[in-house]
Write a protein that binds this DNA or RNA. Structure first.
Ligand SMILES: [Zn+2]
Ligand SMILES: [Zn+2]
Ligand SMILES: [Zn+2]
Ligand SMILES: [Zn+2]
Lengths: 146, 146
DNA sequence: TGTAACCTCTACAGTGGCTGTAGCTTCATG
DNA sequence: CATGAAGCTACAGCCACTGTAGAGGTTACA
């Protein structure tokens, strides 16, 4: 713990990443296998902690682990051109934009359903009615029946 | 197939739901176990097809299967008050709104990263730089370090 | 030195909502 | 009656974790 070695719990506290998740990242090769103490406990360097912080930050921004793997590879080669990194971020931005557009359409549909709320019986419930019949929806960006 | 009985493939075509997914819904109790033909093949009624269409439509609108299970129960009791159904839809709307808000914040962060694109080297790449250091982010709605 | 409290270890199962595969049997059509 | 499509069961895999069990390691304090 002195000379800059961190236990897995300290790593967890410093990065906000759960202990099991750290072990999982090691298992899938996203984090290197660290040193072990005489009692077989993992000992991490500050560099390992920074790498984990990078991973967590990218995850928080929605990057999938495969993209993060690429980004880490790139980060390890500072003299290479950064186009690949920018492309990964651009792809992520596009994915986020697509998800936002889809969710906004769902939001509208849900609002429309709920606008007709009337406190009546299920038989007259607009929510159930719309779910049972997509033609009562305004948007056509979901569903694909006969 | 006459007298209104549908094979699983016909169900699939009419609802846009994959065959395996239909069997999966049966397995988790979302669809009832249908009749079987003499050769052990599933035979569905129109009612079953409507139920599946309801499930798929709700899924397309993002409802989780547990919520759909509740909605189906409610739909089966038309004389009950519809408050519970409205509440489920309202909860779904809220969940969608939360997801949109989060994604919009991610979108901004990604746009900020990419705005500084310069076609240089990784060492000066804003994308890598920001991912390595959350304090370079504008929003605080992600990450939780030491 | 004892011991209690806490941390870490491995290994594996479960989450949600499917999707894919392998190796069969059954069905519809010519 | 042969062929090919469609159906059957059972199970593994996807993503990104999360939780659990049961063992062993470490630390703080009396
Ligand atoms: Zn209602
Ligand atoms: Zn619809
Ligand atoms: Zn760059
Ligand atoms: Zn950040």
């Amino acid at each position: 713990m002195r000379d800059g070695r961190l236990t897995i719990g300290q790593m967890s506290r410093e990065t906000g990443c759960k202990v099991q998740t750290i072990r999982y990242y090691e298992q899938i090769g996203l984090l290197p296998e660290p040193e072990r103490s005489s009692g077989n406990q993992r000992l991490y360097s500050n560099r390992d902690r920074d790498r984990l912080a990078f991973i967590r930050h990218a995850r928080e921004l929605g990057f999938p682990l495969d993209a993060i793997r690429e980004l880490l590879k790139l980060a390890d080669h500072p003299s290479q051109p950064c186009e690949a990194a920018d492309a990964i971020a651009a792809a992520q931005l596009e994915a986020v934009e697509i998800r936002i557009a889809r969710l906004q359409s769902l939001k509208q549909e849900l609002e429309r359903m709920l606008a007709h709320r009337h406190g009546g019986k299920i038989a007259d419930c607009r929510v159930i009615e719309v779910l049972a019949d997509h033609s009562k929806c305004s948007a056509d960006d979901h569903v694909a029946p006969s």
